[in-house]
Design a protein around this nucleic acid. Structure first.
Lengths: 122, 122
DNA sequence: CAGGATCCGGCATGATACTG
DNA sequence: CAGTATCATGCCGGATCCTG
């Protein structure tokens, strides 16, 4: 029973996951889930991210509606990022995934060692 | 132990997610969840992936223990990939995530439109 | 059939300098 | 403080050719 008539242009979720689960998004969302943050607060919270990448990440997350950007017109200007209701709903699925990662980290580590050992003895 | 150290080397899960949730992994895992596949079967199932990327993806997934590679020494040689028990445990978390994606796709689409419209009026 | 090896282009990422 | 602009680059992914 071959149903090869199904058009499969790669999962539509793929693009979405790329936007929300990319390199720095989880760290940023993790911070913003606890409290609203300013730009440089986030930089300090995630020291490895460069300013450029952080800007890109924030823009992307904002565009997808999971975080909000609020500009406070004080003297030098202040920007506060906070998570949106939509962004909060992202937490449980991500936690499930991270739970899986934590739980299976040892098994995966073992698998890697076995694989690398076998590859090395070749 | 001081807390001022920059010991905060990004989430340990980050690297794991990169390996398992990368561009083609979900499509491949999705196929292998249904049935074991040979190399070119997978190529047909995921037409967009190149041979190189597919090889890399399979290697990576195999190294992390979520799929298995079985070489059948027939004449031209046959290789069968199948999902492992560990790989099967990955399904629920991924499904939860994809469910979230499906459920919130409309909201995200709206957020994007709003964002783009505002950006366009600049 | 199932890959390995190689070349190459694009984009993501990083470092640096500058601005409102 | 919160970015933008620019340049350099590294790596991913695609295309092509070759092998057991």
């Amino acid at each position: 029973m071959d149903t090869d008539d199904e058009f499969r242009i790669e999962l539509p979720h793929r693009e979405l996951l790329d936007q929300i689960l990319d390199k720095w998004s989880l760290s940023v969302l993790n911070e913003l889930c606890e409290r609203p943050c300013r730009f440089n607060e986030l930089r300090r919270a995630v020291p490895q991210v460069t300013q450029k990448s952080l800007t890109a990440t924030l823009r992307r997350l904002e565009r997808n509606g999971v975080i909000e950007r609020e500009v406070v017109s004080t003297r030098p200007v202040a920007v506060r990022y906070r998570i949106t209701p939509l962004g909060k709903t992202l937490r449980p699925p991500v936690d499930v995934l991270l739970a899986w990662a934590s739980e299976n980290m040892p098994a995966i580590a073992r698998a890697r060692e076995a694989f690398d050992a076998q590859a090395g003895s070749d």
